[in-house]
């Protein structure tokens, strides 16, 4: 049902997007510790999986962390943004989303403003993870970290937009949202090589990894966080992040317009 057109944008797309972004960000500003909630999982992996990895690899802690921490950053981006649609799902059920649909806001802004909000917790969480790893031997390259977080932010906006699209598609069927969420997330994580190298896995896993955009992202983060800006993996990661972002925004905006 797209008969109601949204060509008239009295306040403008950019202004609307900013308004939505500000609204979505306010709870984070008010309760900064809510950002910590989604940090639990990455920190558990860092603290409990990291030492095992160091032991199993037989290498030194610093070198293993240099390999492992960038993967944890991608995990932050993946898990943090994947469940953001749940908030929209809840607002669709309470009536809060309906209120924004009656306001003279561009439909695209309703999605883009929400998706852009993902950048804030992502950057904060990513920075915390890296700072936690430094005392254990992770060597910090500041320009590399900034570039790495920027690439992750682009990916996060797109993945967040996809999560919102999923919420819009599921409407009031929460179970479906969480089922798709759970079904996709862990395979995406494991098949990206963020926890364990896939080079030792069977050939089919390597094929799966090759078509998983997250693999490229993990590769790029490993290069960037070590300050290796010239690595070919960086280009792959940027393309994967940009493609996720573009697809996410297009699909998301379309879902938002259709749902309205």
């Amino acid at each position: 049902m797209t008969t109601i057109d949204t060509t008239a944008r009295p306040t403008g797309f950019i202004r609307d997007t900013a308004s939505v972004f500000v609204r979505e960000s306010r709870p984070l500003v008010r309760d900064p510790f809510s950002v910590m909630f989604s940090l639990v999982q990455p920190l558990v992996f860092l603290g409990l999986f990291g030492p095992l990895l160091i032991g199993a690899s037989g290498g030194d802690a610093a070198g293993t962390l240099q390999w492992f921490v960038p993967g944890i950053l991608v995990m932050v981006a993946l898990f943090g943004t994947a469940s953001t649609g749940a908030n929209l799902l809840f607002e669709m059920q309470t009536g809060s989303h309906e209120r924004t649909l009656v306001a003279p806001l561009s439909r695209s802004a309703l999605l883009v403003g929400r998706a852009l909000k993902e950048v804030v917790p992502l950057v904060v969480q990513g920075t915390i993870v890296v700072l936690v790893a430094v005392p254990f031997g992770f060597s910090l390259d500041v320009p590399g970290l900034i570039a790495g977080l920027a690439v992750l932010a682009v990916f996060g906006v797109g993945f967040g937009a996809l999560s919102y699209s999923l919420a819009l598609a599921c409407r009031n069927r929460d179970w479906m949202f969480w089922m798709v969420h759970q079904t996709l997330l862990f395979p995406l994580m494991i098949l990206s090589g963020m926890l364990l190298p896939l080079e030792d896995g069977p050939a089919w896993m390597q094929v799966a990894a090759a078509i998983n955009p997250l693999s490229y992202l993990v590769g790029a983060e490993r290069a960037l966080l070590s300050g290796d800006f010239g690595a070919p993996a960086v280009v792959g990661g940027i393309i994967a992040a940009a493609a996720t972002c573009a697809i996410g925004i297009v699909v998301g905006v379309r879902s938002m317009k259709r749902a309205a």
Partner: peptide, 22 residues
Amino acid sequence: GSSGGHTQRVRDELHAQGAFYG
């Protein structure tokens, strides 16, 4: 339904709403 976002604060929602209406 309830128009306010569940995690939002009352005054913040009113401010956001004003911005929504330009």
